[in-house]
């Protein structure tokens, strides 16, 4: 028992010095990053960076702005397509959006004919925001399958939700 408690105290003591040294160095070197995260400036930076990266890797796929997408939603001039998993879709999605996950489309491309029969309609594809490229990949697939009017909502479901726009789940609507 004595030996175990001795080892335990060694672990705590040695671990403490390592954590203390790491904390001091981390604060000194990265005080700006810490400050930004405390002031709510880190997330917008991350989201901007992710969006830029997503657009850079999207080839020629057009992106639609959140406000423009909402205007089209109000006018019922576009069909929203949720490219996330069926589970995510069932939890919550943009109101009236159709579910066509990238995985299910790749497994069975004919699904698109059933879910999105009109190849000339305007489809707005979304997933989980800038960190997610499923919307861009699904848009590429749909265009290569003859859909002529496909755009990506880069902000995705989180952006739509944060803006307070209408969403629905299996049980409720907002």
């Amino acid at each position: 028992m004595k030996k175990i408690s001795f080892i335990g105290s060694d672990i705590v003591k040695e671990g403490f010095w390592i954590v203390l040294a790491g904390t001091i160095l981390g604060v000194v070197v990265n005080h700006k990053l810490i400050g930004e995260s405390m002031n709510g400036k880190l997330f917008p930076q991350i989201e901007k960076e992710q969006m830029n990266e997503l657009k850079a890797n999207a080839d020629q796929i057009p992106f639609i702005e959140l406000k423009v997408a909402k205007k089209l939603f109000n006018q019922k001039a576009a069909i929203f397509v949720d490219s996330r998993s069926a589970i995510d879709y069932s939890e919550s999605h943009i109101q009236d959006a159709q579910s066509l996950s990238l995985i299910s489309f790749i497994a069975d491309p004919q699904l698109a004919d059933e879910i999105l029969p009109d190849r000339t309609a305007l489809y707005i594809i979304y997933c989980s925001g800038g960190g997610c490229d499923m919307s861009v990949e699904l848009a590429k697939e749909l265009i290569s399958h003859g859909y002529s009017n496909v755009e990506v909502l880069g902000e995705g479901y989180p952006g739509w939700f944060d803006a307070g726009y209408p969403v629905e789940s299996m049980n409720s609507k907002r």
Partner: peptide, 27 residues
Amino acid sequence: GLAAALMPWVEAIAGLCLLTGFNTKGA
């Protein structure tokens, strides 16, 4: 913000301790 700022330094110091043989229990 805190994790991104501090954790890498703790990792690097712990790694250095293990490599050199100092404070190996804590590391």
